[in-house]
Design a binder for these strands. Structure first.
Lengths: 115, 115
DNA sequence: TTCTAATACCTCGCGCTTCTATGTATTAAC
DNA sequence: GTTAATACATAGAAGCGCGAGGTATTAGAA
């Protein structure tokens, strides 16, 4: 309903991409679709963010890719997680959880909440 | 226990600063301390991030500042929220909630969750 | 047939933020 | 008398997200 305009904070995109790929090999275009669908429109990833991110992750050795055919008979680059990528996913997920916990504490803060 | 290394995602710092200031006038140095204490060490704001952020927010008209004396008899720049700043705080808080909701959906995703 | 829309990939460059490093000055403690 | 904490500040580097642009294929509408 509400215009779901919401830019991603720097750093979170990698985590989301790793998570989607961890569920099974997917190609880039499908990753963006999954993220938008699953998050119910909250997370929208423009291609200008997506593909550079994928290349970054691949260069860091967190992803590996092979060209295959999609179900619709079209060539696409399917990504999968490396062992290093899986480890990174776990670390970043934990970091994220800790972060939103900490930020939650701050946002719930009311007058007289400290000293 | 665990090394609390956790860089802030871009954009969240403004939100946290606005939130702290909303509780009453504070000076910059104290803001960083409050954030670290309340978040139990999760949020750590280096001065090189803090002061530029404060200046940014002031230039955008979200904060106003006056020099006053601290309880320890020292000069410090006390910030307070403008009306615009309060409005911004509400918007950004709502945006943040929607974002962590969306990201939460993605991180909870398991195989077979979509098709 | 021709045009549009969707799929699927890519890069360039702007803009913005964060962080490290460095600097000043004062007060308190050791 | 030197170190640590308080309190402010800036400069420069590095990184990321995004808009805008580009290529190519396929499917469907006009």
């Amino acid at each position: 309903m509400a215009p779901p305009k919401s830019d991603l904070p720097q750093g979170t995109l990698d985590l989301l991409i790793l998570k989607v790929i961890a569920l099974g090999p997917v190609h880039g275009y499908a990753i963006a679709q999954r993220l938008e669908q699953v998050s119910r429109g909250v997370v929208q990833v423009p291609e200008g963010s997506l593909y550079p991110a994928l290349h970054r992750l691949e260069n860091r050795g967190l992803l590996a890719a092979d060209w295959k055919e999609t179900e619709t008979g079209r060539e696409a680059k399917f990504y999968r997680l490396t062992r290093k990528g899986l480890k990174q996913l776990k670390t970043e997920t934990a970091d994220w959880q800790r972060l939103i916990y900490g930020i939650g504490l701050i946002l719930q803060m009311a007058d007289g909440g400290a000293e």
